Amino acid sequence: MSVLPTPVRAPLEHRHASHPRWLRLTHWLNALAVLIMVTSGWRIYNASPLYDFSFPLSITLGGWLGGALQWHFAAMWLLLCNGLAYLLINLASGRLSRQFFPLSAKGVAQDLWAALRGRLGHADLSRYNQVQRLAYLFVILDIAVLVVSGLVLWKSVQFATLRELLGGYEAARHVHFVAMALLVGFVAVHLLMVAVVPKTLWAMIVGRKERT
C-alpha cells in the first residue's frame, strides 16, 4: 500500500501574493481619476497661472477652459466616491490597521536604507514595508487636502468655513497646487518602483504575482 507524501507548503517567496478584487478596482479607478484631474487641472491652471510658468497644452485635457472644468468635476466625483469606498472597506475589514501599522521612524529608516542598498525583500507583495505604509498614508492625506481645497475653489461661498481655515481663496489655490504637485511626485516615484519590481504591476492587474 503506497502512502502519498504529505504536501509541503511552498515557502513564502513561491506562494502567490493576492490582492482582493475591490482593492484592484479602487486602485485603477483612483489612477484614472487622478490622471483626468491632474491633466484637466493643468489646463484650468493655465487660464489663470499662480506662478511664472504654464503647462504645455499637449499634456493637458479639455481643450479649453469649459471643457477642462467638465472633465475636472467629473473626475472629482469619481475620486471622492471611490476614495471613500476604499477607506470604508479598509476600515470595515480591518485592513487599514493590518497593512498600514505599526509605523515608526526607525522602521521607515531601516526599510529605506535596505531599499537603497537593494536588500529590501519583495516576496510577499500583499504586505507593505514601512516606507510603503508611510507613502500610502501620505497620499491618502494629500488627496484629502486636494478634495478640501478643491471644494473651496469650486464653491467658495458655500464652503466659507473651509475657505477661512485654508487662509482664504488665494491661499486655497496655493494649497491645491502644492497638493497636486506632491501627488504627481508620488505617482512618479510609484511608477519608478513598478519599473524596478514589475511583478507588482501584474499582481495589481490579476490579483497575484506570477509563480516563481
Rank of each mutant, 00 (worst) to 15 (best):
W71R: 00
L84G: 05
F101R: 05
S93K: 00
L23Q: 04
L88V: 06
L32W: 09
P49G: 13
F55L: 05
W71C: 05
A33E: 01
C81N: 10
A85N: 02
T39W: 06
D52N: 13
L134C: 07
A33H: 11
M37A: 11
A47H: 14
A31P: 12
L65I: 15
M76L: 09
L134P: 14
L116G: 12
G66C: 02
L78I: 14
A109V: 14
Q130M: 15
G94V: 02
F53Q: 12
G66K: 04
F100G: 06
S126M: 02
L88K: 07
I44D: 10
L50K: 15
A47Q: 14
L134T: 15
P56D: 03
A74T: 12
G67L: 00
A68M: 09
P49V: 13
V34H: 10
L35V: 15
R24C: 04
G107N: 09
G121V: 10
S54P: 09
A74L: 15
Q132K: 10
F101P: 09
Y45Q: 14
S93D: 07
W77T: 04
L25N: 00
A47G: 15
S104W: 02
G63D: 05
M37F: 06
R119C: 02
A47S: 15
L103W: 10
P102E: 05
R98H: 04
W28V: 03
S54N: 09
P102T: 06
W64R: 01
A135Y: 04
V131Y: 00
L29I: 11
L80V: 09
F100S: 13
G121P: 11
L134F: 13
L80W: 05
L69Q: 14
W113Y: 02
R24P: 00
T60E: 00
A75S: 10
R127T: 08
R119S: 07
L65W: 13
